[in-house]
């Protein structure tokens, strides 16, 4: 069963314990200065964003069909069956196509390092594989961040909106965005207030490139035959013989001249 995270901004009190737990889990530094940064970076995988008295969490959406995993030429990014989208630095060659392709601009780079890697939330893949919750969900004192089966969380999100139609924006961010994501967000105000895009397609992004790429195996024998055929038609036997005789002459002329 694929796991997921449901973040309900109406329950969030902005205590940022999820940030702290995330830093601890991933061996990242955390102090007041970093807590004040309301952006994710190579040393901060999740951030609690503030807009007036409203909150929102930014973390990797762990897409159902992630662009980053699809574009990675060496398969360093992987969508696991359990839900997390993981990264293997030992495979990575640093082309940064994942960063260019991500619709949420989640992957960050260690620009200052001579041996850099991509950094992002991997939905605590090790913990999840052990049957545990993600660090952020476990620490959350109000249940704003909830971990569980994605399908069950989606049903719950729908129920919450249905039961409290005035509290929530009637939009589960991540239900359909880019084909659906493992992380889903609920809010009382528009997600664009926190830098999320309103115009994201509901199609899984990898389909955009795959519908072209998948034609290539068929294209190669057709186009190859066409080129070979044109060659065959345009080069009659005597033409070839003629050209060779001419070349031989030429070569002898060159050889003699030296």
């Amino acid at each position: 069963m694929s796991k997921g995270i449901l973040y309900d901004a109406t329950k969030c009190i902005g205590c940022k314990q999820c940030e702290q737990a995330c830093a601890t889990e991933n061996g990242l530094p955390y102090d007041d200065k970093i807590a004040a940064q309301e952006v994710t970076s190579a040393h901060k995988y999740t951030a609690v964003l503030t807009k007036d008295d409203k909150f929102m969490r930014k973390l990797c959406m762990n897409c159902g069909d992630p662009a980053c995993a699809s574009v990675c030429p060496v398969g360093a990014m992987k969508k696991t069956a359990l839900g997390p989208v993981t990264y293997d630095k030992s495979k990575c060659m640093g082309c940064r196509y994942c960063m260019a392709a991500c619709p949420f601009s989640v992957p960050k780079y260690e620009w200052e390092k001579a041996i850099p890697g991509v950094r992002k939330c991997i939905m605590c893949s090790t913990r999840v594989a052990e049957g545990k919750q993600t660090a952020c969900a476990e620490i959350c004192p109000t249940g704003a961040t909830k971990f569980g089966d994605r399908d069950a969380l989606l049903d719950e999100a729908k129920k919450r909106i249905h039961d409290n139609p005035d509290t929530y924006l009637h939009h589960i961010f991540g239900e359909n965005e880019v084909g659906g994501t493992s992380v889903m967000l609920l809010s009382s105000i528009g997600f664009n207030n926190f830098g999320f895009r309103n115009d994201l397609t509901d199609r899984a992004l990898p389909m955009y490139t795959y519908q072209v790429l998948s034609r290539i195996p068929d294209f190669i024998p057709l186009f190859g035959t066409m080129l070979g055929g044109i060659y065959w038609i345009t080069h009659r036997r005597q033409d070839v013989a003629e050209a060779e005789a001419q070349e031989r002459e030429e070569r002898e002329f060159k050889g003699g001249a030296r």
Partner: peptide, 24 residues
């Protein structure tokens, strides 16, 4: 120069992802 880990440039030879345009 542009690759972050240029010494891994040969990786696509053995680590294949045919869904990636970059791989192609």
């Amino acid at each position: 120069y542009d690759l972050g880990l240029p010494w891994n440039i040969w990786h696509p030879l053995i680590m294949r992802n045919p869904h990636s345009v970059m791989f192609e």
